[in-house]
């Protein structure tokens, strides 16, 4: 099957007063039609940046894409003009953000914001677009959609706002949905509602979803495959069952051990020693080596590439064969 989105060897750096921070260091990622792919990692690992790069949302002044390609439906996205991106955003590729209050315009009514994109991308008339907006709000299980279109974002609860954003993201028939921490700002009960809704609607429409989150449990519940990022690299990628239950990379293992388990409480959580390195002067070789227990000489000198462990399961670690 042809991947819908194929990112290969993507390098992104940020220029600042002290030099170049190499925030994405050769990302390889494929997303297939209708698939849910989780992208997990700690803050600063480059998850959101990857999504922003796909949508052409990197700050033009400071961000430099030094290498790599992003293919969407077989066409290159890097180097496209702002105008071309505008035709893509919201129409073919949409994004849902973490904080729905910041993603909605506080001074426009919900209906107006929805109608705006429907008119722009689908060329509907005002009346048609209004009807379509109401239909989409029903689709995301909003009660009283006729009333909600006349309300302002502040009048809705967090869960409702996230539903509206999801409706807006899907209403123009996007094939790819980039969901950046869509449930992090929500309570667990509402999170469960939104995750189910996302899965249900995306399955129904055949939309592919790149779900960015720091919550491994959310990924376990929604995605088929997961990619683990550390410091601008993908260190492990594979089916959810494999990566979360038979993790191969020391970082993935450490991350899973640091997670408090709701089913039973151990006495001590294992934390990862040290902290995320400064990206202006990233460690040579494997970027995780200063915090890794299994470090050896090769790790400090050469960068490991993703290699196959089992079917569809890849890991970037020199010591991989030692602990399978």
């Amino acid at each position: 099957m042809e991947p819908l989105l194929k990112i290969s060897d993507l390098h992104v750096g940020f220029l600042n007063y002290a030099g170049v921070a190499r925030v994405l260091n050769g990302i390889d990622l494929e997303l297939f039609p209708g698939e849910f792919l989780g992208l997990v990692g700690e803050s600063g690992s480059g998850k959101s940046l990857t999504a922003n790069a796909v949508l052409g949302l990197l700050p033009a002044r400071s961000a430099v894409i030094s290498k790599g390609s992003i293919m969407f439906e077989g066409k290159e996205l890097i180097g496209r003009s702002e105008k071309e991106f505008q035709g893509l955003r919201g129409k073919k590729i949409s994004m849902v953000f973490q904080e729905p209050m910041n993603a909605l315009n506080p001074s426009y009514k919900i209906g107006k914001q929805m109608v705006e994109i429907l008119k722009l991308h689908k060329g509907l008339s005002n009346k048609e677009a209004k009807a379509e907006a109401v239909r989409w709000l029903t689709q995301v299980h909003i009660q009283n959609p006729e009333k909600v279109v006349k309300e302002y974002p502040y009048e809705l609860s967090g869960g409702m706002r996230q539903r509206v954003l999801l409706a807006m993201a899907l209403s123009c028939g996007s094939q790819l949905l980039l969901a950046d921490e869509p449930t992090t700002a929500l309570d667990v009960t509402i999170q469960a509602q939104i995750l189910r809704l996302m899965k249900e609607t995306a399955d129904q429409l055949g939309t592919s979803v790149l779900l960015i989150t720091h919550d491994l449990a959310v990924v376990a519940q929604t995605c088929q495959r997961v990619a683990v990022m550390y410091c601008g690299n993908i260190v492990e990628i594979g089916p959810v069952t494999k990566v979360l239950h038979e993790p191969c990379h020391p970082y993935t293992k450490a991350l899973l051990k640091a997670l408090p388990n709701p089913d039973h409480s151990e006495t001590e959580l294992q934390s990862i020693p040290g902290s995320v390195p400064n990206l202006l002067t990233p460690p040579a070789g494997c970027r995780f080596h200063p915090r890794c227990d299994l470090v050896e000489k090769t790790c400090m000198e050469l960068r490991p590439q993703l290699t196959t462990v089992s079917e569809n399961h890849y890991v970037a670690c020199w010591r991989e064969e030692d602990h399978v």
Binding site: Q191, Q193, A217, A220, L244
Partner: peptide
């Protein structure tokens, strides 16, 4: 329901019940 809404790291334990409304 609050306890059942916590996503579990084990994909074989899906989110069963969920709370409607707010």
């Amino acid at each position: 329901v609050l306890l059942q809404s916590i996503p579990n790291i084990n994909p074989e334990k899906p989110l069963l019940v969920e709370l409607e409304g707010e």
